[in-house]
């Protein structure tokens, strides 16, 4: 069995985000064999190595089997085993088009970046926008809110989904929003309604970045763990939203696909 596996040719993609590092292992037929997500921490080289090791373990593969690895994300230049790198914009587009080969608008909500990426029916990027210099509406905003409310990140989705009403926030600013939330708590407003308002704030920040065209697809860690946020977005834009099977992995998958393509060129 081991010998047979050792003959495989595999490709790796690692997405070192500001918050989380993601790795994906694929074979020549673009099947995902293994993957992993872990905190990026402060040592991106270490986290990318550990993340890759876990993904390889899941794929029952050895590092020596990797034909080519590509990196992406904020810490892409810190990945020592990568032969090449691409920006996360390009990798998300590549990874999403792999799942859904159609013209689409991708909304990626990351740890400190939000992106809106437009892809045509041939998988080519036609446009993209990143959030302006402020991190309002990103994962960092949600983390700050959870910290202030003493709510676990894993509890956000359930709370928002259980809300009977919604308390919308007025400010762009994360710090002022937290003050606004605490003021509402002091006034006896339900936590669930506030959490739904916090989700609403994230969605509004994203939707004001660009117009949405074609089919809409959502990715990123926030989407992976908060399906209710996707449901709220669907209600707001009055359209069904596609979510890939592993929404946090599309960047890493895209990097692995670029690695595969580079071998073919």
């Amino acid at each position: 069995m081991r010998n047979k596996l050792a003959e495989r040719i595999i490709f790796a993609g690692v997405d070192v985000g500001a918050s989380r590092t993601k790795a994906a292992i694929i074979d020549s037929d673009k099947n995902i064999l293994g993957w992993n997500v872990r905190k990026s921490g402060t040592n991106f080289t270490l986290s990318s190595n550990l993340c890759l090791a876990e993904a390889l373990s899941m794929a029952h593969a050895d590092k020596s089997e990797i034909r080519i690895a590509y990196s992406t994300g904020y810490g892409r230049k810190n990945v020592t085993f990568a032969a090449g790198s691409r920006t996360e914009i390009g990798c998300h587009a590549k990874g999403c088009y792999h799942y859904f080969p159609i013209a689409m608008t991708i909304i990626d909500i990351g740890g400190q970046d939000n992106k809106i990426i437009k892809v045509d029916e041939n998988g080519k990027r036609t446009n993209f926008k990143m959030n302006r210099k402020c991190a309002a509406g990103t994962g960092a905003f949600l983390e700050e809110m959870c910290l202030r409310l003493d709510v676990g990140l894993e509890d956000m989705n359930g709370l928002a989904a259980d809300a009977e009403g919604i308390i919308k926030l007025g400010s762009y600013c994360t710090v002022f929003s937290a003050t606004e939330v605490l003021e509402n708590i002091r006034n006896g407003k339900p936590l669930a309604d506030l959490m739904k308002g916090i989700f609403y704030s994230v969605i509004k920040r994203v939707l004001e970045m660009d117009s949405l065209t074609d089919k809409v697809l959502m990715t990123g860690g926030v989407v992976a763990y908060n399906p209710y946020l996707v449901k709220m977005t669907e209600e707001l834009i009055q359209s069904e939203i596609l979510v890939p099977k592993l929404p946090q992995l599309t960047g890493a998958l895209g990097a692995a696909l670029f690695a595969l393509e580079s071998r073919q060129q």
Binding site: R86, T87, I89, G90, K124, R125, F128, M130
Partner: peptide, 15 residues
């Protein structure tokens, strides 16, 4: 952010 934007933009032109 600016660096990523610019690099992604040049990638887009290339693609």
């Amino acid at each position: 952010q600016n660096k990523t934007n610019i690099e992604a933009f040049i990638e887009q032109i290339e693609e």
